[in-house]
Amino acid sequence: MNSLGFVETKGFVAAVEAADAMAKAANVTIVGTERVGGGLVAIIVEGDVGSVKAAVDAGAASAKKVGELVSVHVIARPNAALEDFFKGIREKKK
C-alpha cells in the first residue's frame, strides 16, 4: 500500500485550495475528501512517501492562506488493514 497523507481544514474552501496545491506539488493521487462534521474537511492523498510529504506540506501552506488549517499527517507505511478502511472512500469518489 502507498503512503497516505492527510490535510484537515475547517471549511470547504481551504480544503479545495489544499487539494489543488497537493495535486500540483507532487505525484500523488487524491483518494478522496471526508466531511468530518462541524465544518471540518479532510483531504486524503496517496503516493510514494516523498511525494506525499511534499504534497501535505504544500497543501498545508496553501490552506493556511485562505482559511483555517486544522491538522496534517503522513502515514509512510500504512498497515494493510487500512485498505478496507479507505475502500468506502474510494467507492464514494467513483
Binding site: 506540506d57 504544500a58 501552506a61
Partner: peptide, 10 residues
C-alpha cells in the same frame, strides 16, 4: 487550534 509549520514558513 494547532499551529502547523511548513516548508514555506521556513
Amino acid at each position: 487550534m494547532k499551529n502547523i509549520l511548513t516548508g514555506e514558513d521556513i
